[in-house]
């Protein structure tokens, strides 16, 4: 920076600056190190969870290869496929649900509006697991807990209640000036046209944000998946698979593969996250568009 060179900083200020950067560097190391370590582990040649050295002794791609070829013990490719299917369906339904609810609450005025928001707030206070057990029983009564129907069960579980998570999207819609809607209405648009042709394009960041979060959800949840899949190894999702790799009976053989799996699913999530970081910030601070 030319400016800083010209205006010579006082020694005290330079010291603080140095300390701040040092602090940031130390913190960054603390935060990055575990991730770095996982990546290293995923390339580690020697198996087992507990080693005597911090850095691997040998490097190999075998962990990745095993992850995607070994179908006998833990069928990771199958789990990956399951999760992908579930995630795509979920993404579709959840996005529709969240945006519909958020738009209705933000833009339309109807009698049920306030009660709905209050109900949503109250439901949000119940521990998620309270409903989980009962959801399982309901799915069971609907015959969705056996065989490949489990997939449908999981899709339902992941997307059915997303209508309660409208807050961020609604907050964003609220910042779009109402007069834009009114102008569209005067121009002859129906509410549906306002929704699809005006609000959706304007709310692109939040649409992307919603799509991403709902796509990611099935990849990182393992509790619902575990309760609903039970012992149906055929229908396991990636999360359960990874969880299983760390159980006593598998951990020695599979620990490095676990690291490889973790890296594999982290990459797309990392890309998505870095891309949507800005929407995340905007969603929180409520950027006014217009």
């Amino acid at each position: 920076m030319e400016d800083t060179k010209r205006n010579k900083l006082s020694p005290r200020k330079r010291l603080t600056n140095f300390l701040v950067h040092l602090l940031l560097a130390v913190l960054a190391v603390i935060w990055v190190l575990p991730i770095f370590w996982i990546i290293l582990t995923s390339f580690r040649a020697e198996p087992g969870a507990y080693t005597n050295t911090f850095l691997p002794q040998g490097y190999t791609l075998a962990n990745y290869i095993k992850l995607f070829t070994d179908r006998n013990v833990l069928n990771f490719p199958k789990m990956f496929k399951n999760t992908l299917i579930i995630a795509i369906c979920c993404c579709f339904f959840s996005t529709f649900f969240v945006l519909s609810v958020a738009y209705s609450l933000s833009r339309m005025r109807f009698k049920f509006r306030k009660p709905y928001m209050n109900i949503a707030m109250i439901l949000g206070l119940f521990p998620g697991f309270m409903a989980m057990i009962a959801q399982y029983f309901i799915l069971k009564a609907m015959g969705l807990t056996e065989g490949s129907a489990i997939r449908i069960g999981l899709i339902i579980v992941y997307s059915a209640c997303t209508g309660l998570g409208f807050q961020i999207a609604k907050g964003f819609f609220d910042t779009i000036p109402r007069s834009i809607d009114e102008a569209a209405v005067m121009d002859g648009a129906t509410q549906w046209q306002v929704f699809t042709r005006i609000t959706m394009p304007l709310a692109k960041p939040i649409v992307i944000y919603t799509v991403m979060t709902s796509f990611i959800a099935p990849w990182v949840d393992f509790i619902f998946a575990k309760v609903i899949c039970r012992a149906n190894a055929d229908q396991f999702t990636v999360a359960i698979g990874l969880w299983n790799m760390l159980q006593k009976e598998y951990i020695y053989q599979w620990y490095t593969c676990f690291a490889a799996g973790a890296v594999i699913i982290s990459i797309p999530i990392a890309i998505l996250f870095i891309y949507m970081q800005r929407f995340y910030v905007e969603g929180m601070s409520g950027a006014v568009k217009g």
């Binding site: 935060w31 990055v32 575990p34 990849w219 990874l242 999530i269 990392a270 870095i274």
Partner: peptide, 9 residues
């Protein structure tokens, strides 16, 4: 970056 790694992992 640390957010990008799934929490449970």
């Amino acid at each position: 970056l640390s957010i990008a790694v799934p929490q449970f992992v």
